[in-house]
């Protein structure tokens, strides 16, 4: 176990984890909501430091990141635990359980990346912020070697740890699950406001894309979705939004999101945002990157196959600057 960062000792022999907004107050031997941090004798330890449950070389489009080196392969890894408790989690076998792991050191990861000539790493699959100490050390070491670090996260983190990690992170996809505080209370069992604050901060510091998983009957109400879109547009209409199709998983048996709902949300979002995509579904719309100025198709996608690019980050036809990092 690794001594954790971001905790405070209380007067009554408890420690308070201040990594995420849950701020778990833990007595000796207790583990936090995330399952990744435990109090022992007045010290908080990271249980998942260097513990890898899943890893693989994925297309960067699978994160999803569509405006960050399209077509790149990203070495992706995750641990166990999550500070959210979504009943529809597709990765619940690692996020809501304590599966077997493989011990990996920072040096192991650096060596693996170097040996295989990998230029992109993603901390993903479960919630990377609750893997904080390992992610921070890896990101720092890899950034020194020119490797790009990316996170796929729920954004539920306190601002101080976020600020300490951000200098080493090149891109993030944040899952904005709904614009309803009640939804966040009921399903992930967290708060909406800290996620919104994370989105604002991250947009100031690194490349940002957002995902909204539309779950049948849970967050498919148009009015709330429009509020979510308006929030994004007020930060920047150029932030890519991935509207993602839900499939039954973990504890939820609701049917998969209908293509009609996805297309309707795509239309609504496209009224205010420049780059809207549909994920986990193959439809005529919502895959390609199109110039918002002249409507030229800049990047074609079929599944995770990518063709064309955005040379210099500008539309090849009209020269309009396209949000993102295109190499």
């Amino acid at each position: 176990m690794k001594k954790a960062l971001f905790y405070e000792k209380s007067t009554n022999d408890k420690v308070t984890c201040i990594l995420c907004p849950h701020q778990c107050s833990l007595a000796n031997g207790e583990t936090g909501i995330c399952g990744g941090r435990r109090a022992e004798q007045g010290v908080l330890y990271s249980l998942n430091y260097g513990q890898v449950t899943s890893c693989g070389l994925d297309p960067i489009e699978k994160k999803p990141l569509y405006h960050f080196y399209p077509g790149a392969q990203v070495y992706s890894l995750g641990t166990f635990g999550c500070n959210f408790k979504c009943s529809f989690c597709q990765n619940s076998s690692i996020s809501q359980a304590r599966p077997s792991t493989e011990q990996v050191s920072v040096e192991d990861l650096v060596a693996l990346v170097k040996k295989n000539d990998i230029h992109f790493v993603s901390y993903t699959y479960n919630e990377p912020f609750i893997w904080y100490e390992f992610v921070l050390e890896c990101s720092r070491a890899l950034a020194e070697r020119g490797v790009k670090n990316t996170l796929v996260t729920n954004g539920y983190v306190n601002q101080e740890p976020l600020a300490e990690l951000l200098p080493y992170v090149d891109a993030m996809n944040i899952d904005l699950k709904s614009f309803s505080a009640d939804f966040y209370h009921r399903y992930p069992k967290g708060e909406l406001a800290p996620v919104l604050e994370t989105i604002r901060r991250v947009h100031e510091k690194c490349h940002l894309e957002l995902t909204n998983l539309v779950v049948s009957g849970l967050n498919d109400e148009e009015g709330t979705f429009c509020e979510l879109v308006n929030f994004i547009a007020e930060i920047s209409p150029d932030i890519p939004l991935h509207i993602s199709r839900y499939f039954p998983a973990y504890q939820l048996d609701a049917p998969p999101t209908s293509p009609q709902t996805l297309l309707r949300f795509y239309q609504l979002a496209s009224e205010r945002l420049s780059f809207v995509y549909l994920g986990n579904v193959s439809l005529d719309q919502g895959a390609d990157t199109v110039c918002p100025n002249c409507h030229q198709v800049l990047i074609e996608r079929r599944g995770y196959t990518v063709s064309r690019s955005v040379p210099g980050g500008k539309c090849s036809k009209c020269g309009h600057a396209i949000y993102g990092v295109f190499g």
Partner: peptide, 25 residues
């Protein structure tokens, strides 16, 4: 591959996920 997948091997996903031009990166 399920978790824990391939024991931290590098998986070549190119064929399954589609050919992409990767050389520029």
């Amino acid at each position: 591959f399920y978790y824990p997948k391939a024991r931290c091997q590098i998986l070549t996903t190119r064929t399954v996920y589609g050919e992409r031009s990767l050389s520029s990166y």
